[in-house]
Design a protein around this nucleic acid. Sequence first.
DNA 1: GCGACATTGTTTTTT
DNA 2: ACAATGTCGC
Length: 728
Amino acid sequence: MQADVSEILNELNQAQRQAVSSPSGPVLVLAGAGSGKTRVLVHRIAWLIQVEGVSPYSILAVTFTNKAAAEMRGRIEQLLDMPATGLWVGTFHGLAHRLLRQHWQEARLPQNFQIIDTQDQLGVIKRVHKALDLEDSRWPPKQSMYFVNGKKDEGIRPQNMQDTGDPITRQMIRIYTAYQSACERGGLVDFGELLLRSLETLRDNETLLKHYRDRFSNILVDEFQDTNTLQYSWLRLLAGNTSPIFAVGDDDQSIYGWRGAKVEHLQRFDKDFKNTQMVRLEQNYRSTSTILNAANAVIANNAERMGKNLWTDGNDGEQIQLYTAYNEQEEARYVAERIRQYAESGGMRSDVAVLYRSNAQSRVFEEVFIGMRIPYKVYGGLRFFERAEIKDALAYMRLGSNQHDDASFERVVNRPTRGIGARTVDQIRAEAREHELSMFAAAQRLLEHKILTARAAGAVRNFIELVNDIAAASADLPIHELVDHINVVSGLLDFHGKENNEKSQSRIDNLNELVSAARGFEYNEEEHGEMSLLDAFLAHAALESGEGQGESWEDCVQMMSMHAAKGLEFPLVFITGMEDGLFPHQMSIEEPGRLEEERRLCYVGITRARENLVLTLTERRRLHGSDRYNMPSQFIGEIPKELLHEIRPSVPSYKKQSSSSYTSSSGKNLVDDESSEYKLGDRVFHQKFGEGTVTNYEGSGSHARIEINFKHAGSKWLVVAYAKLERA
DNA sequence: GCGACATTGTTTTTT
DNA sequence: ACAATGTCGC
């Protein structure tokens, strides 16, 4: 097995080699953007197998997305030139799921437990609220869901929670408890539960834990900066004191703090694991030095960094271009025009990315692109398996697998409408609660005791027969025929067929696409174990939200949020909406920690570009119905001037200041009527709020309002006519 | 059960 | 502004 050492280490630089060939023990690879982090992971695995003679069975590689997992597996097989059997490569959730399926008894789950996504989960929570008789206005279901998920992410069960006497916490504990028993009853497992339940199962089963600890003597983790508390505990439990973790990550690319990711796991890795070998990958193979220097300069403004400086031996490349548009339409037209030129001079549109802070910003671009006949693809938004019509069909399939899945029952009991209205459903629900039955069982009981009106009874009987029919069919038919059967007998196809418009047509297309997806679904003995084909497909639908389902392969401009762009690269990148309030987002400006995360997002955005980077912003932007006059993003001011080329340097300058506010050097008046005496960047003084800076303006005449960012009182909108402002 | 009207929220997203 | 959800009356 010693033979291919050179092949594995060839094509690697010094730092990469050091990481790949590290002696056994904890390793932390700090991998800057574009420094070949996936490559290091893949080569490390090859090294373990071919040089260290480690069995693939004892290797566990964890990623965050299915895409990353698939790519890693593919590249490993390519490098090893053979199928990577026995090797566990997958997402945290996928691997936890696999554990739970294999040990459903130890985990105290029903064998055919179903995974619910966020939408389903919210539905369950809403029903719990109803059962507890809580007003949605006083107890927003979403808030309860965040609470439950937050607790699960910290590994906390309702019974471990202190009743401090605080009525809100007390209520939340009640909700969490009721939600959990609702899930137990229906055999439902949410995303957080996958992780928490598998963690508990391992923790509480000494033999099981020992088995997996012995088996996985090598654990590799990608994007380590994105792990949350639960994922981290999961890793540590599995690693124990004997299986070293090989972690790869970049603290500068930690952009998921808002959903519970803790960079601290990366930052204190060497304290948590003794004798950690730390390797920094700082040579970038992606971008021009101009782009890299800009990224480095921006990220240098963050205080809490582990320190790292990207360099390249590539050429300078062109300056970063900065374009200030009048408004968002003009911004989009400029970008479109640039893309048109790029394509005309032989560039591929798919080499171009249009990035933005929030998805809503894509709309204007889409409109302009359509007008100019520029093909584009928007990433993010609803994915295939999340579409309403698909979820309906899946709910029928789930009922076929488990009649007691109340979430699915409620979803489709009257979809399409079949005469089982809210009153009847209420009755079923009450019956279920009273006798501690599932909705399905309760419906049957109502029929037996002839409690329903004749009309409702008929409709309910039909529905029960429908579900029984599907259950029978799911035992007999191959899965794609089952989907086809469901589409017909449930009436979903007919229902959407009746309405004849574009939307209903696309729903029908999607339902048919689901048949194809089922046909193409491959049952993997190794991964799915004893699961029925149906359950395996349903799990697949829940865990892989279906990115890329029914995708057309045209040469398209790639449009996405900067978050979605992490891990990707493009020769030409536009970062749009570079305005304070938009990016950094308003919600993140006040809190220093959140601002640093925005800055890391900016770093991620910049480092997506290989050759050319264009930043755009607007002077005036319509947002939530009103016009905003935003200042240029403070991040622009953090890029060294010599790297920037202003294409239309008419308006503000980007002088950097010590405070977070920027002044407009051009002194352009924001309104043309005489009543306005304030302009952006003016320092003002208010009787109550003290000193501040004008950051936005809206309306005119006596209705004119200005937004002032006060030094101590925060940001406020004031009516100029009443505010009694003085110049500071 | 459905259409008309009102209310609400509007950063980022994977699983 | 606008879309998505919830409420109400027939």
